[in-house]
Computed example of a mutant assay.
Amino acid sequence: MSQGRLYRSYLYVPASDEHKVEKALESGADCVVLDLEDAVVPSEKDHARQVAADVLMGGNRSRPIFVRLNAPGSTLLEQDLELIAPLSPAGVRLPKVESPEMVREVGCEFECRGAHNTKIQCLIESALGLERVFEIARAHPLVAGMGLGEVDLAADLGVSDERGLIYARSRVVCASRAAGLPGPVGSVYTNVRDEEGLRNSTLVLKALGFVGRSAIHPRQVKVINDVFTPDAEEIRKAKEVIKRIERAEALGSGAFALPDGSFVDRAVVEAARSKLELARLSGGGEL
Rank of each mutant, 00 (worst) to 15 (best):
T118M: 05
K119T: 14
K119H: 11
K119N: 11
I120T: 06
I124D: 03
A127M: 02
R132T: 05
F134R: 10
E135T: 14
E135S: 14
I136T: 06
H140T: 12
L142C: 03
L142Q: 15
A144K: 03
G147T: 06
E150K: 12
V151L: 10
A155R: 08
L157M: 12
S160H: 03
D161T: 11
R163H: 12
R163D: 07
G164A: 07
G164T: 05
G164V: 04
G164R: 06
I166E: 12
S170P: 07
V172S: 07
V173W: 06
C174T: 15
R177W: 12
A179Y: 10
A179K: 03
G186Q: 08
V192N: 04
R199Y: 13
N200Q: 15
V204D: 10
L205N: 13
L205P: 04
K206H: 14
G209M: 07
F210G: 13
F210H: 14
V211H: 12
R213M: 12
I216V: 14
P218T: 05
R219A: 09
D226Q: 12
F228W: 08
T229H: 11
A232Y: 01
R236L: 01
E240W: 09
I245G: 06
R247G: 13
A248Q: 06
E249H: 04
E249I: 13
S253E: 15
G254Q: 01
A255L: 01
F256H: 00
F256L: 00
L258V: 01
